[in-house]
């Protein structure tokens, strides 16, 4: 029975990793850039939600705070693209990588300066309540995290596969020049993608801060999410979620059954194994691209 509880806890953690990984994949799928500040945007989203919703801060109702945080972070994502990324348009990918890593550091310190470095928990309606199935006691927050994540992933997946805008985002990344020829406004599409990534980061942040606690260095778990995105195939939305879930599940079981100190290695061992046996990830889009 303990294992089942471990599993649900792991899945809930994995969902947060998966949502950050979704942000990575969104931006990569649409712009061929990698945003290493995605984890820090999640952290910022969490703090914005706390700032809006907690009693100690603005004290808005929970749902209003959620909507507010998602809207603010969507605008933030768009602003980041407009001010920081667009001047780099057409530059090498490494420039974007370095820029976003640096930007992540800036976000970390700014968040620390505004909200302090102590962990904060977001007030939420399901905090502390439990759901009991027979002998198994599960946290309602963990179940909520899993449900919300599945819904969001499904929506994003449908958006990319079915809507004209979603397909145009894929088209712009697959062949930017051809996208221009077809009259797809590539720069505006990039802005919209960052907007979506910002909103996703806010959703991840809210879930993260509601089921645990958040401090300015929480963005560092973006590295685990990056591993999750790579495991999933970096370019596949369901793959990113699956990668996140795998890492989320491996962690608590490793912590329990493997000697302390080695357990933290487990998620990355999975990453290395996947890369050895399925170099393009579990949901590979491209098979054997030779460069």
């Amino acid at each position: 029975m303990d294992d089942l509880q471990l599993m649900v806890g792991g899945l809930a953690n994995g969902c947060v990793y998966g949502l950050i990984a979704l942000g990575f994949v969104l931006i990569y799928k649409a712009t061929e850039q990698v945003n290493f500040a995605q984890g820090d945007m999640m952290m910022l989203g969490a703090f914005v939600a706390i700032g809006l919703g907690n009693e100690s801060h603005a004290g808005l109702p929970f749902w209003l705070a959620c909507i507010g945080a998602v809207t603010i972070m969507a605008g933030f994502g768009m602003a980041v693209e407009r001010t920081l990324l667009r001047p780099l348009f057409g530059q090498s990918q490494i420039a974007v990588v370095i820029l976003t890593i640096a930007f992540g550091f800036v976000l970390r310190f700014v968040a620390g300066a505004i909200w302090g470095h102590d962990p904060l928990v977001m007030d939420n309606p399901v905090a502390g309540t439990h759901v009991t199935f027979g002998q198994v006691v599960l946290g309602a927050d963990e179940i909520a995290v899993i449900v919300v994540t599945l819904l969001l992933t499904g929506l994003l997946f449908l958006f990319f596969a079915r809507t004209k805008l979603g397909i145009a985002m894929q088209a712009a990344s697959q062949n930017q020049l051809a996208a221009y020829y077809m009259g797809i406004p590539v720069k505006r599409i990039h802005g919209l993608t960052w907007m979506l990534a910002g909103a996703t980061a806010a959703a991840a942040g809210i879930l993260f801060a509601a089921k645990g606690s958040v401090d300015p260095s929480a963005g560092l778990l973006g590295i685990k999410a990056f591993a999750a995105a790579v495991i999933g195939g970096f370019g596949s939305l369901p793959g990113a979620l699956l990668g996140g879930l795998i890492i989320g599940l491996v962690e608590p079981f490793a912590a329990r059954y493997i000697a302390a100190g080695y357990a933290q290695i487990a998620p990355y061992s999975v990453l290395i194994l996947v890369l050895i046996f399925r170099p393009h990830g579990l949901f590979a889009q491209v098979r054997g691209k030779k460069l």
Binding site: I167, A168, Q170, A179, Y181, M182
Partner: peptide, 24 residues
């Protein structure tokens, strides 16, 4: 509309989606 040389299509999108992008 410019039909570029060298078959600049969207390789991972389906044929139907490529056509839909022509009407973007």
């Amino acid at each position: 509309v410019h039909v570029p040389e060298g078959r600049e299509i969207f390789p991972l999108l389906s044929v139907a989606q490529n056509l839909a992008m022509g009407a973007y």
